[in-house]
Amino acid sequence: MAGTVIGSGISIEGEITSDDDLVISGSVRGKVIGKENVTIEQGASVEADVSGGTLTVQGSITGNINAADRVDLQTGARVIGNVRAARFTIADGAQFKGNVDMDV
């Protein structure tokens, strides 16, 4: 597990680069660059372009999403931005506004 966790009480303005798993519950403005699993938890507020291997979203993202493997918007997710991924799911109850590019 290990990896990086940005807790709900923390806000970061700037760039996060991670080779590990990344879990964000707090607030991030800037840029998020992950390589493995990136999880945006419920209550998180991300105003940033987000990239990663597998992206799981339960919180709010304003910015473009770019995943090497897949993006899952789960219930409660709120995303404004474009999504580029090989696989992409939007669960019932997730809000999404933007373009999708799935490398057809």
Binding site: T4, S8, G14
Partner: peptide, 16 residues
């Protein structure tokens, strides 16, 4: 998730 950890493979540039 209340504990914030910047893991070993992670770099943050900016204000925390």
């Amino acid at each position: 998730t209340d504990v914030t950890v910047i893991g070993q493979g992670t770099t943050v540039r900016g204000r925390v």
